[in-house]
């Protein structure tokens, strides 16, 4: 057990900075997409539009807290909080830097997988409670997509576990001192990246909320702060996925010259930008193509990668 973890400073600092970063990502994404699509994006509120998020927050607080009379009310309120809470709680095991973090679990990786799995309840319950056909279709798609991609999401990162011999995220980072796991685990990285995009239900895998066919999918009846929670929850999911990719495959806080925390934040930021670039550049596949790709391509690759990694790790040991 590391000392210096889980102090009051850690808890408050991580909670606030994670929420702040996720909220600011709304502005970052809108600006970047605008740049790539040759338009301006939000630039009115404050310098460069930086206060757009604050303006959005104020608006969300003063919007009507509307719960549809035809909805299943308790579940309707519960659903957006699930994604928000599970994604935020997921940050507890992220090894930001030596001595910075909330808790040091021996099973940190399993904790992360468990929480990302739990977040699927959010969309399923939201779609079910809304009593709207589009929501229902969206949540069905979301459920099927998330459970399909979850199977090989877990398997793809087991190669990392084999190489480092532990589920502890801090020890996984330390095990990458001699070389990041991106090189020996390239196949695992690709599979995990695809699964992470699919799990966070972002473009190009945003079929549960495909605007052109389902309007907004599972959150069609949501407005105000409850919609905001889905929105921020999505960005929290991206941040969490990026942090996990950095931890598992890109050496976490390791790096020369700069302090460890700076390295971790820089690498995570790079992956967040990569997620936004994906959204800006890739078209959406058809739903059956998405499923076929997952089961027929990604799952066998993940399984074979696991076997190959095991054989190499055993023969070199």
């Amino acid at each position: 057990m590391n000392t210096g973890l889980g102090g009051a400073m850690d808890i408050i600092g991580i909670l606030l900075s994670v929420i702040f970063v996720s909220a600011m990502l709304i502005w970052v994404e809108r600006r970047l997409l605008a740049v790539w699509q040759d338009r301006l994006g939000p630039n009115r509120v404050g310098p460069l539009g930086l206060f757009q998020v604050a303006a959005d927050m104020i608006k969300m607080f003063f919007k009507e807290d509307w719960i549809p009379p035809f909805a299943d009310k308790p579940v309707f309120v519960l659903a957006p909080t699930i994604v928000f809470i599970t994604m935020l709680t997921g940050f507890a095991v992220i090894p930001f830097a030596p001595g910075v973090g909330i808790i040091d679990f021996n099973f940190g990786l399993l904790y992360f997988l468990a929480l990302t799995s739990l977040s699927v309840y959010s969309v399923v319950l939201a779609g079910y409670a809304s009593n709207n056909k589009y929501s229902m279709l969206g949540s069905l798609r979301a459920a099927a997509q998330t459970v399909s991609y979850e199977v090989f999401m877990g398997i793809s990162i087991m190669g990392v576990v084999m190489l480092s011999g532990t589920f502890n995220l801090r020890e996984i980072v330390e095990a990458q001192r001699d070389g990041w796991f991106i090189l020996p685990q390239f196949a695992g990285f690709i599979v995990f990246l695809v699964a992470a995009v699919a799990e966070s239900r972002r473009a190009p895998f945003d079929l549960p909320e495909a605007e052109q066919e389902l309007i907004a999918g599972f959150h069609i009846e949501y407005s105000g702060m409850k919609f905001g929670m889905f929105f921020v929850g999505e960005y929290l999911g991206i941040t969490l996925s990026s942090a996990m990719i950095v931890t598992l495959f890109f050496g976490g806080w390791l790096g020369p010259w700069l302090p460890p925390l700076v390295w971790f934040c820089l690498k995570t930021a790079a992956f967040i930008l990569f997620f936004i670039l994906l959204r800006g550049s890739l078209p959406r596949p058809r739903y059956d193509q998405l499923m076929t790709f997952g089961w027929k391509a990604m799952l066998p690759v993940a399984l074979l990668n696991l076997l190959a990694t095991g054989a190499v790790a055993l023969s070199s040991a």
């Binding site: 057990m1 973890l5 889980g6 102090g7 850690d10 808890i11 408050i12 991580i14 909670l15 809470i85 935020l88 709680t89 507890a92 909330i102 808790i103």
Partner: peptide, 12 residues
């Protein structure tokens, strides 16, 4: 050991 996690969860 779980105290920081519980406090964090409470804060969330």
């Amino acid at each position: 050991d779980l105290l920081p996690l519980i406090v964090y969860f409470g804060a969330v």
